[in-house]
Write a protein that binds this DNA or RNA. Structure first.
Length: 654
RNA sequence: GCUGACGUAGCUCAAUUGGCAGAGCAGCUGAUUUGUAAUCAGCAGGUUACCGGUUCGAUUCCGGUCGUCAGCUCCA
């Protein structure tokens, strides 16, 4: 293997060519060629590579610093090793499983009987600091598979053995270990690498949290303690990250929603059940009116259906057999009849369709409802308004002919895009959710599934939409296209969804009469641009940080009299605005103007109207915007024009 | 559901080793009549989530239940 005496040709990313002896490390290249950045990792022919790992053949070599994604990953991966070593020192019984870098840091899955708690973080961190201060090099040791496996068997660590087997199955010819220091003396870990040159590179590590996880993600398998941490090159970067986290917490919809009086959750009502307060209700009403207007324009018809249905309905639809566990238990009557809180609106809409005879000329039929559904989510899953047990979908079902599927599907995707554009969501990822061919949790004929999946994919491609196909994410009755956004914490949530369904029409035996005078099976499209009102509003709150644009704001205008003398004029102005459909309130308390402004500001009200002697005398009002901008006094006509303009300009598109 | 942490006034948070449960904001009352992010004073507000145990005495220690949070698993 060794070719120490040979010369190899290295091309740097800037095009510089160097002839160096085989076995030269990237770090030596840095010293020789001079590189602007402080590299922590190299990229050799597109593959991440230790700076200290010898180069033995011609290659293109680049360098990455700790601000780059690759560099940061490597640094955090190295930090994971340091943390694992620290934990092994403190708990010699700990068995390591798996410790990768993640988007915001890293974690290590560890099997250990004794629970690690946040009280232990300081001493873990202290051990890490010791290891970092020693600036021990990360040394790569490659072993032939048999030797490596023997070594792992000695360690009696089935998790690492399993990792190694998987690496070999994936085609790795050798297994690599990384020693933090000198082979044979220091701590080592089976690891593909790469790592930063030595522990001293990890300038600012922090142990963040601990939680349970499972081997291979299998609940029935061994349970690990997953210790999360993060690391940066410098303390300043860590501090900035922690500040960002803190700011994100303040933007959390649970915090903002509480401050702005939008919603509440009451233990006695039940976990995961949202109580919309008046301000939240107004916001929801605006959203509902906005969307209903769009739907009517696009040929939808509004329907209303009840919150429960007989259990047989859901046996026919498949909801009950497929998802009994995630439903509230059936309501049983004395005569033995059972009802279910509806987990979805589709069966009711199908029954509306089935109640009439349709010809192909009538299709598509588009039935829309803001329908409230109930799902018994596991207690550990509940989370503010984003994951709840009762929620209202902006649901609709399109019944169409097979020939109409593509056009209808395309139109619904365009509707979702229109909605998202209106609110200025730009960080939206689109997921094509397909069935898992190896699972039996899907209903119906595989041939129809193939057809539906193909149709979705082709329409998306036609539309030039970037999407990611993911197996196992489909609904039980059909594949779907999901619009996924991220909350302030970085968690991903599905909002809009469009689903193609050949199954439920079959299960319910619905039909229409075709041009050939024969009965045909319609195809269904399920779709919800918001997804759920609860989740959508949660994301909206975080998106705007509670500062809703004028057209959405629960309170658009607050009238502020300078003193009690102006109360009557202010109250009258407020009433006239309400008459005009403006969501206006008037602050008639005997407080100073400054205080009233401060509170209106804290409630993030877009427009304040200040009225004092001057305004009363001239019959005007002086706007102060949420931005702090003060405008000249406006008379009634000018004020209405100004508010209309606010309404128009605050919409993201239209 | 699992692991861990947490639960004190409407909200945000205090309370030495187990020793009479406190503050700010909000609320109420009064005074003040205010011109662009907090006027002043007073009052009231609690079965310390709930249930049980240890103790002369429990917000504090122990057990259980419920809920919240983080992650895992799940998510029609």
């Amino acid at each position: 293997m060794t070719q120490q005496h040979d010369t190899i040709q290295i091309t740097l990313e800037d095009g510089t060519r160097l002839d160096v002896p085989s076995g030269t490390t990237p770090l030596e290249l840095v010293e020789r060629a001079g590189v602007d950045v402080e590299p922590v990792i190299a990229v050799v022919d597109g593959e991440l590579w230790d700076l200290t790992r010898p180069l033995e053949r011609d290659a293109t070599v680049g360098f990455r610093d700790a601000q780059s994604e690759e560099g940061l990953y490597a640094l955090r991966h190295s930090a994971a090793h340091v943390m694992a070593e620290a934990i092994c020192r403190l708990w010699p019984d700990a068995k390591l499983a798996y410790g990768p870098p993640t988007e915001n840091g890293f974690y290590y899955d560890i099997y250990l009987e004794e629970p690690i708690s946040s009280d232990d973080f300081p001493r873990i961190q202290k051990e890490m600091q010791k290891i970092i201060a020693e600036k021990r090099p990360f040394t790569r040791v490659e072993l032939p598979p048999e030797v490596a496996m023997d070594r792992l068997r000695e360690e009696d660590n089935k998790y690492k053995l399993d990792n190694a087997e998987r690496a070999l199955e994936a085609g790795d010819g050798v297994l690599s270990f990384y020693v933090t220091g000198t082979p044979g003396e220091n701590w080592e870990d089976l690891c593909r690498g790469p790592h930063v040159p030595h522990t001293g590179y990890i300038g600012a590590p922090k142990v963040m949290s601990v939680a349970a996880s499972h081997w291979h993600g299998d609940v029935n398998s061994d349970q690990f303690q997953r210790v999360y941490g993060t690391a940066f090159r410098t303390k300043a970067e860590l501090k900035e990250y922690l500040n960002r986290l803190e700011a994100a917490k303040q933007r959390d919809h649970r915090v903002v929603g509480q401050k702005l009086g939008l919603f509440t959750i009451d233990e006695q009502v039940g976990p995961g059940l949202i109580l919309w307060k008046p301000r939240g209700g107004r916001l929801r009403q605006v959203l509902q009116d906005f969307l209903t207007g769009e739907l009517v324009r696009r040929g939808y018809q509004v329907v209303f259906t009840p919150h429960i249905g007989k259990i047989d309905l859901y046996k026919t639809s498949g909801h009950y057999p497929f998802y009994a566990d995630s439903q509230f238990p059936p309501i049983s009557l004395e005569d033995g009849e059972q009802y279910l809180l509806k987990p979805m609106n589709c069966p009711h809409h199908i029954k509306i369709f089935a109640s009439d005879h349709y010809s192909y000329r009538d299709l598509p039929i588009r039935l829309a409802e803001f329908g409230t559904v109930y799902r018994f989510e596991q207690s550990g899953e509940l989370q503010g308004m984003t994951r709840v047990r009762g929620f209202t979908q902006d649901d609709a079902h399109i019944f169409c002919t097979p020939e109409q599927v593509r056009d209808e599907f395309r139109a619904t995707v365009e509707l979702v895009q229109f909605v998202f554009r209106t609110f200025g969501f730009d960080d939206v990822s689109i997921r094509l959710s397909l069935r898992d061919p190896n699972s039996d949790k899907y209903a119906g004929d595989p041939a129809l599934w193939d057809r539906a999946e193909r149709e979705l994919r082709e329409v998306l491609e036609d539309m030039g939409i970037d999407f990611r196909a993911e197996e196992g994410e489909a609904a039980f009755y059909g594949p779907k296209v999901d619009f996924v956004v991220r909350d302030v914490i970085g968690r991903r949530w599905q909002l809009g969804t469009v689903q193609l369904d050949y199954n439920l029409p079959e299960r319910f035996g619905i039909q229409y009469i075709g041009a050939d005078n024969q009965a045909h099976r319609p195809v269904m499209i399920h779709r919800a641009p918001f997804g759920s009102m609860e989740r959508f509003v949660a994301i909206l709150i975080e998106h705007y940080n509670g500062a809703f644009p004028y057209w959405l704001a629960p309170e658009q205008v607050r009238v502020l009299p300078v003193s009690d003398k102006h109360a009557e004029y202010a109250a009258d102005l407020g009433r006239r605005l309400i008459d005009r459909g403006v969501r206006a309130e008037t602050d008639l308390r005997s407080e100073t103007l400054s205080k009233k402004i401060r509170e209106a500001q804290k409630m993030k009200i877009p427009v304040m109207l200040i009225v004092g002697d001057q305004e009363v005398e001239s019959g005007t009002a002086s706007p102060r915007l949420r931005s702090g901008e003060q405008l000249d006094a406006l008379d009634w006509a000018a004020l209405l024009a100004f508010l209309d303009e606010q309404d128009r300009d605050s919409r993201g598109s239209v």
